[in-house]
Amino acid sequence: MSELPETNATGPDQPTRLIRIKEVQYRTGLGRSTIYRWMSQGRFPNPVQLGGHVVAWLEGDIEEWIDRSSNRIVP
Rank of each mutant, 00 (worst) to 15 (best):
M1C: 06
M1T: 08
M1V: 12
M1S: 15
S2N: 11
E6P: 10
T7R: 13
T7L: 15
T10C: 10
T10H: 13
D13C: 03
D13S: 07
D13N: 07
Q14L: 04
Q14P: 00
P15F: 04
P15H: 03
P15M: 03
T16D: 15
R17F: 06
L18W: 04
L18A: 01
I19K: 02
I19E: 01
R20Y: 14
I21Q: 09
K22G: 04
K22H: 07
E23K: 12
E23H: 06
V24P: 04
V24Y: 04
V24L: 02
Y26M: 05
R27A: 09
R27N: 13
R27T: 01
T28R: 02
T28D: 04
G29V: 05
G29H: 03
L30A: 01
L30I: 01
R32D: 06
S33T: 14
T34Q: 12
I35W: 09
R37T: 07
R37G: 02
R37I: 05
W38G: 00
M39S: 04
M39N: 04
M39R: 08
S40I: 00
Q41M: 10
Q41T: 01
Q41D: 12
G42S: 11
G42H: 09
P45A: 01
N46S: 13
N46Y: 09
P47R: 00
V48A: 05
Q49C: 05
V55T: 13
W57K: 00
W57P: 06
E59N: 10
G60M: 06
G60H: 02
G60Q: 11
I62F: 08
I62K: 06
E63D: 15
E63A: 06
W65S: 00
W65R: 02
I66H: 06
I66E: 04
D67N: 13
R68Q: 14
R68P: 02
R68N: 14
R68M: 08
R68K: 14
S69E: 12
S69R: 08
S69M: 13
S70A: 11
S70W: 04
R72Q: 14
V74W: 08
